[in-house]
Amino acid sequence: MPSYAAILPTLVAAGWRAAVIVVVGASAGLSINALRPKGLSVATYAPAAMCAGAAMPQEIRVLRPEQAARLCGDARTLVADVRSANAFTEGHVAGAVHIPCSGSRADVENVRRLLERKEALVVYGESEEQARQVASDLAIRISRPELSVSIIAGGWRAWFDAGMACASGPCDDCEGLASHAPI
């Protein structure tokens, strides 16, 4: 068994060669990126949209409107509307915040802040699929397994038709959500 003293010079010699490989490889990567017509921006990272749905979701529960309504009055629950800003202004679940599909990375950070003291997130949209995409994407980005994430079955229309509490007008709690602006 070789001693540490015998291994150390080998590791040092391999170490600086490893550094050279990393530097050369990284430089090549930056050069290739610069030559690409649609190269990535080095300085910033922003996902294209929260609706991208590239990754698989954690468990997303589906709640009937009356089940979701029971959660709405709970201070530990955040209700999120993912429809367009105009649709939100025309009418939304009372107390909901507006987080559209086109939300930016900054929006995700603000949602994370809004969810800091919450235990449940209820998402709805025009359809279950629209809500599911945003809910699963948020669940991944926020990375809080203990957070219960649900969507409303049938989306906004089912909530409205069930005669549940609705509100209209701009979002009161959307301060900081850059993408919340009527189109």
Binding site: I21, V22, V24, G25, A26, A28, G29, L30, I32, N33, G39, L40, S41, V42, A43, T44, Y45
Partner: peptide, 14 residues
Amino acid sequence: NYVAITLPSVELAA
């Protein structure tokens, strides 16, 4: 983005 730009070419070089 920085990882996505540099890591594949580092892997290829190594």
